[in-house]
């Protein structure tokens, strides 16, 4: 069997295995979320001021919250299998619609952050490893330590003060200019302009992680036997570093990036909040406090599916980075 058909078989098997995992996550989340006191009706009625008990009972009935938990779960699972994520009573909208609406901003922020963090992290780690134990190496280490240790919200606020208020370079928050409402290419430029500060803030943290990981990984590979063999053959240091060591050193970094895609969806709540970026993290955060369980379950479902998918992609990337790794 050739390699590509092997990969296809492997991918489809993994996808089928992913389904029970995702369903298990849904069931677990369902019960965990129902442990919280109060429900969506309480919050809605609380915000509305005074509401009569009859009114609240009626709402519970309408939302299906009056049924016993196992029945609610069965109804939910039945809908999920039919790819219907249900209805958000708080927003009066389909959950799928809400999530897709907020998925694009998250995706834009996530992709740009990963590219920036992994890209610069790999470069800096490489730079530090090549200049091991020189002042350049120390500079990189100190930089990584500081960015890793600084709280995200503080970095975000400082960015706003420095680059938005003191210097009028970037907008403070939001995804686009809501006084102008640009269209077409102007809108793309506007969104990119709004994207700069949140992306830098969010990547700084991950950048530190990748830098340190890349540096350690490079150093580990330098000590391997194959490097000595290559040197003995008379391969240039440049070729050893960029062709042999770099490719091997990238494996753990790619693994890490795969794991963090899932974390980025939830982990960007702080950045989304500080920069009013309309992503999924903020939606999940708000729906928790509103006890909007349908919506929350939908977001969890999406992020678990995403983690399963990304891990699969990472496994496939392995095969290309290291031809010795085979799928079967």
């Amino acid at each position: 069997m050739n390699r590509s058909s092997k990969i296809i078989r492997y991918v489809s098997r993994r996808l089928i295995q992913g389904i029970p995992i995702i369903l298990a996550i849904v069931v677990l989340n369902f019960f965990l979320l129902n442990l919280a006191e109060g429900d969506a009706v309480d919050v809605l009625a609380g915000e509305a001021g005074s509401a009569t008990p009859e009114y609240m009972e009626e709402m519970r009935k309408k939302f299906g919250l009056d049924k016993p938990l196992p029945v609610q779960l069965a109804v939910y699972l039945k809908n999920v299998i039919q790819l219907d994520l249900g209805y958000s009573f708080r927003h009066d909208m389909q959950v799928t619609e809400l999530i897709i609406d907020r998925f694009w901003p998250t995706l834009i922020l996530m992709v740009s952050t990963i590219l920036l963090a992994v890209g610069f992290g790999v470069l800096l780690g490489l730079f530090a490893a090549i200049n091991l134990n020189t002042w350049k190496d120390s500079m990189v280490s100190v930089f990584a330590l500081i960015t890793y240790a600084t709280p995200l919200f503080w970095v975000g606020l400082m960015m706003i003060i420095l680059f938005s208020i003191k210097n009028d370079w970037f907008p403070t928050s939001g995804m686009e200019n809501s006084a102008m409402f640009y269209e077409g290419f102007e809108r793309v430029k506007d969104i990119a302009h709004h994207l700069v500060l949140p992306t830098i803030t969010l990547s700084l943290f991950y950048l530190a992680l990748y830098t340190r990981m890349m540096r350690a990984s490079m150093l580990e590979q330098y000590g391997q036997d194959y490097v000595i063999t290559a040197r003995a053959k008379g391969v240039s240091e440049r070729r050893i570093t960029f062709v042999h060591v770099l490719r091997n050193a990238l494996l753990p970094v790619v693994t890490m990036a795969g794991v963090q895609v899932g974390a980025l969806i939830g982990g960007s709540v702080i950045v989304e909040s500080v920069f009013a970026w309309p992503g999924l993290g903020m939606l999940a955060f708000e729906s928790l406090f509103a006890r909007d369980l349908n919506l929350l379950l939908g977001i969890f479902l999406l992020s678990s599916a995403l983690v399963v998918a990304v891990n699969l992609v990472v496994d496939v990337i392995y095969c290309f980075l290291d031809p010795r790794i085979e799928v079967n």
Partner: peptide, 22 residues
């Protein structure tokens, strides 16, 4: 011609947006 209500979750950012005139 237009009124836009903006939703900014973070209190410090809201103050910054006010300060900047956004």
């Amino acid at each position: 011609d237009r009124i836009v209500g903006r939703f900014v979750p973070d209190a410090s950012t809201r103050a910054a947006a006010m300060e900047k005139g956004e």
